[in-house]
């Protein structure tokens, strides 16, 4: 199965990439998008979901910088 670790900036931390993308969306003529935040997703091939604890450790010490970012983990069959 596949584990997906999502890493995104915490609320309140300025995201210049997101802002730039948002203004591009506006320039394309769409007006429904009020805020864009950029994140990363890590897809990891795993045996089963028993690795959640270890993944949390990996996510909090390496994949995300907990000073500015947060993470969440999902498993997909």
């Amino acid at each position: 199965m596949k584990a997906k670790v999502y890493v995104r900036l915490k609320n309140g931390v300025l995201d210049p990439q997101g802002q730039t993308i948002q203004s591009s969306i506006e320039r394309m003529g769409y007006d429904f998008a009020s805020e864009v935040r950029v994140g990363k997703v890590f897809e990891i091939e795993v045996k089963d979901d028993s690795c959640r604890k270890d993944l949390e450790k990996i996510a909090s010490t390496m994949l995300a910088n907990m000073i500015i970012e947060e993470y969440s983990i999902e498993f997909e069959a």
Binding site: V13, L14, P16, Q17, T20, N65, I67, I68
Partner: peptide, 16 residues
């Protein structure tokens, strides 16, 4: 900063 020897973090330049 990543290793915790100094506080804070360094993010992408605002001009990108």
């Amino acid at each position: 900063t990543e290793s915790g020897l100094l506080p804070g973090a360094l993010m992408r330049n605002r001009g990108l």
